[in-house]
């Protein structure tokens, strides 16, 4: 099957992977540096998006050097988006309970359980 745009993109896979790794490191930094629960959640979303970027680039037929079968990564990415939404919903509900107990969403105040 001849794809009309198959040779349109000259951006190599490594460029996409670099974007993914920057997102990943930003997410990890965000998670460690932020004390606010919402901030940490944003960091987690960034990490998930890093994985998504990798997957989509790796299985795109338009990216030179991609290794995964076409559509595998794209479908995986859709599932990751779904999971991220479910996780965020659960985490926000939990944040609300936490706020009910502590009147703040700063995670440093949660030190009743010392571990």
């Amino acid at each position: 099957m001849e794809l009309p745009l198959a040779h349109a993109s000259q951006i190599p896979l490594i460029a996409y992977l670099l974007v993914g790794s920057v997102l990943f490191v930003t997410g990890i930094t965000c998670m460690i540096a932020k004390r606010n629960l919402i901030g940490i959640l944003i960091g987690i979303e960034l990490i998930l998006n890093a994985g998504t970027v990798n997957l989509v680039a790796m299985s795109s037929p338009f990216v030179a050097g991609s290794g995964l079968p076409a559509l595998d990564g794209q479908v995986f990415a859709l599932f990751v988006i779904l999971l991220a939404a479910a996780e965020a919903a659960a985490a926000l509900a939990i944040a609300l309970t936490y706020y009910g107990g502590y009147a703040t969403i700063d995670v440093d105040h949660g030190d009743r359980l010392n571990g």
């Binding site: 987690i44 107990g101 502590y102």
Partner: peptide, 25 residues
């Protein structure tokens, strides 16, 4: 304490799932 436990669990869990996803890719 229950809310605090859930927050810790959810954050650690989501973060480890994210790291795992990146490793999978």
């Amino acid at each position: 304490a229950s809310g605090e436990a859930a927050v810790k669990f959810a954050l650690f869990g989501a973060a480890s799932a994210g790291v795992m996803l990146y490793g999978m890719t």
